[in-house]
Design a protein around this nucleic acid. Structure first.
Lengths: 340, 340
DNA sequence: ATGAAAGCGCTAACAT
DNA sequence: ATGTTAGCGCTTTCAT
């Protein structure tokens, strides 16, 4: 029982290789009882088609590439990425695809490895996690006609498929909540401002202030770079303006902000109210627990795969652009439920 | 320039397909100037061999599978795993291998997908992250003659290759440090005790107490399951015995332990001294910063790949068993540097 | 040192 | 509905 092939299954079932192939690929033109018979043999023997052979013959591939261009530091420091990956993996398992991971640690690695990704037939499709704003990766994928979807909003989104969360709206709701709670000097620790997520959340913050007639004060805005330590520094800077509340653009950064607040002998939420973004594990283990904007990260990964599969089957056009909603989860850090 | 093949490169270079193949595979029997010429053409055209075709013809594969059997929750909640993955990815990039991720969310998924992994020729080799103690995965991999290495110590390690960190020694050093600092009632928040890492660290704790003539008190030991919330609960339980120090078997758990301590109005390190394990980002952002046992996680991932490559090339025997050292990193939580 | 030819396991026309 | 046949792009004998 060394190595099962279509041919061997065919022999065992007393049919031709093609028929077995049709059964395996769920092609309709096979008589029910023949299909039955073949399926039995396959089950008995534990046959699995050879992925490479299949891919070579059909010029398709059942491998989905997940690409993280550079900025890997954040990737491994923020639980966002593992959660996204988990959703993607789950969908891949379910749809019988393999998942291949491409992490680029340097610009050079990216240059060397990207051609591999673009080689036709190797990858069935690609999920591209956008990082910095510029994105030649997108151009290369398009040029090589690799089906792909972007996770997150790309900066020039006109013609590409992507799936994102409504960052502007999420931030807007967070800040509106802080305003309703009676805070008037509200600062923000923004996410990296060379990413669309960072920018969008900042816009939501600005819009909320504007719509509620609050002035926009630049010295209450600092870029925390989506890292804990970046947020720590950013918070220290903003603190000189004595805000009474802070919208922090990620939970991980909120942990950094809280640390800065604690170091400054400021209590959350008594002295400074806080709202984060993500609702990932750090939100719950924060002290006090974090009020935050929940985004469905895992689900986003899952759907990314499903949309990509649709693109693979039905073509790139029209671009699929999906925006998922968020939900404000109220805990203790915003002061809505008094008692820290 | 649509799709480059060996044949096309051959034509351009005025040689045969075989010669180009030899050049690509660094076979010695090619005259230098011919090799030169071919390499030039390859560089100009940006040719890359088709992985599937190559794998089909040679019955080898340049894909390394990274397998996480179940218990995925912890996988995505503890930065350990992303860091390990990063090291693995780096090595794969460097050695021109692709990395494929297999996350099993249920026992059923594992049963369904494992045959795929074991199908010969699909994966060049496998890195298996051990989870729970029992491990049929190991048996299956062996039975199918898939080259593999285990990340972490498997429970029945006799004949399998693995790479691990010296957990016993690391824990021993942490606890010895706490003893030297004058603590006498030292508890531990153990890692999941159905994992070898959890058990080994517990043994290190016990050995340190024994060797320094301290009694072993079962009520000072609680299983934190390697999660933040598990550690929170475990710490609350242990607190009834008023320990003056705690060895916590991971940084993530240390965050949970600190939260429990804070909720109990206990100050670190004044009331309770703390040492963690890992030295990953949470250690630095903890308040106060965590004294912890540094393990070279990323490097472990990197070396896992290199050892696996050796196994692929030179055979399974003898089993490679590698144990990396740890280092105690002293910060504020242990009280060695007074001032919180 | 190089080329010719067979074949890896599969899919996809094309016959029948 | 099923079988036959010709590749997919590569590696690998086997000649030369």
């Amino acid at each position: 029982m060394e190595n099962l092939t279509l041919e061997k299954i065919a022999k065992l079932a007393g049919v031709s290789r093609s028929t077995v192939s049709r059964v395996v690929n769920a092609h309709p033109s096979v008589r029910p009882h023949v299909r039955q018979k073949v399926l039995e043999i396959i089950a008995e023997t534990g046959y699995h088609p050879h992925a490479a052979a299949r891919s070579l013959a059909s010029n398709r591939s059942n491998i989905i590439g997940l690409v993280f261009p550079r900025s890997v530091h954040a990737v491994f420091t923020d639980p966002y990425f593992p959660h996204l990956t988990q959703g993607i993996s789950q969908a891949c398992n379910q749809h019988d695809y393999m998942l291949s991971l491409f992490l680029f640690h340097t610009k050079e690695e990216e240059r060397n490895l990207f051609p591999r990704i673009c080689r036709k037939g190797v990858l069935g499709g690609v999920i591209l996690q956008v990082g910095q704003l510029e994105n030649e990766s997108i151009a290369q994928l398009s040029a090589n006609e690799i089906p792909f979807i972007v996770a997150g909003r790309p900066s020039h989104a006109n013609q590409v498929s992507y799936i994102d969360v409504d960052n502007v709206d999420g931030a807007y709701r967070a800040v509106t909540h802080l305003i309703r709670l009676g805070n008037s000097s509200i600062g923000t620790i923004a996410g990296a401002l060379d990413t669309t997520a960072g920018l969008d959340r900042l816009h939501g913050y600005e819009r909320a202030l504007a719509e509620h007639g609050l002035p926009l004060d630049d010295s209450l805005v600092a870029d925390g770079g989506f890292t804990e330590s970046g947020a720590y520094e950013a918070t220290r800077r903003v603190l000189s303006c004595t805000p009474d509340a802070l919208f922090v653009a990620s939970d991980v950064m909120a942990v950094g902000a809280m640390r800065a607040l604690r170091d400054a002998q400021l209590s959350v939420p008594r002295d400074v109210a806080l709202v984060g973004f993500d609702d990932l594990p750090p939100a719950l283990s924060a002290v006090p627990p974090l009020t935050t904007v929940r985004q469905p990260v895992q689900q986003m990964g899952f759907r990314a795969v499903e949309v990509l599969l649709d693109i693979i089957q039905n073509g790139t056009e029209p671009p699929r652009q999906i925006v998922l909603g968020t939900e404000l989860v109220i805990r203790a850090s915003c002061g809505a439920n008094a008692r820290s």
